[in-house]
Amino acid sequence: MRKPKIVVKNLTKYFGDKKVLDNISFEVYEGEIFGLLGHNGAGKTTTLRIIAGIIENYSGSVDVYGKIGYLPEERGLYRDEKVFDVLKFFGKLAGVEKDKLVDSINYWLNKLKIQQYKNFKVKELSKGNQQKVQFIVAVIHDPDILILDEPFSGLDVANVNLLKNIILELKEKGKTIILSTHQLEKIEKLCDRILILKKGKAIHYGTIENICRKMAYIEYLENGKIVKKELPYKDALNILKENLEHVIKFEVRYSLEELFLVEE
């Protein structure tokens, strides 16, 4: 049985009077890549911030078993300081031992192909390279759990592939990764399981295959009007049986993109 590294139970969060997360529960297992999907305002970033320990005062429980590395959606670094100094500061803050820190910084700078910018000020780097520095901040202390909020945004194709390969390598090493992204093809290729959020509620949870198979799209006539529904496969099947003569269209969904769009 796989070991859960993140256990979220009945998580609810309000910002003022607004409920932004509504009774969400899920688990993320050791060595898996877990995707968080949803449109803007669905609650992805809030969920990740709570797991990262940045936001407090919520109801429900969030248990995290291991050291966390975090790549926030809003990228930010000390722009007037040198890349090496910034990494050294965050490495120390994250608890990397003094004798291992420089080696770790050099390893990751090489890995992300930005060793030559080590003594440059952050503001002198391109946006893409700044993002790579930000990624190093997330992994410099060799975390057990990596939280990546929109990790591919702002990167060109070559760098997206570089980062994707690094994420897969980390998975191979047994790291647990939870990421959010709008880029569905990345989710389909990278993630073992996903959670789809809509207006703070969890609407689908599991492997991509199971979620897609579970869903069906049906169009049928009811009292002279066309009804269009995206439903769990079983429910759609029941409607199909009951309204066989009136069904216009029945499809079993396999595409995450279609599923995602319908949810909007």
């Binding site: 809003e74 722009r79 965050f90 803050l93 901040v137």
Partner: peptide
């Protein structure tokens, strides 16, 4: 400055 540069979120994750 740390708020404007959006560093706070990162700092709060590690401390």
């Amino acid at each position: 400055e740390e708020k404007q540069n959006r560093i706070m979120e990162l700092l709060l994750c590690y401390s």
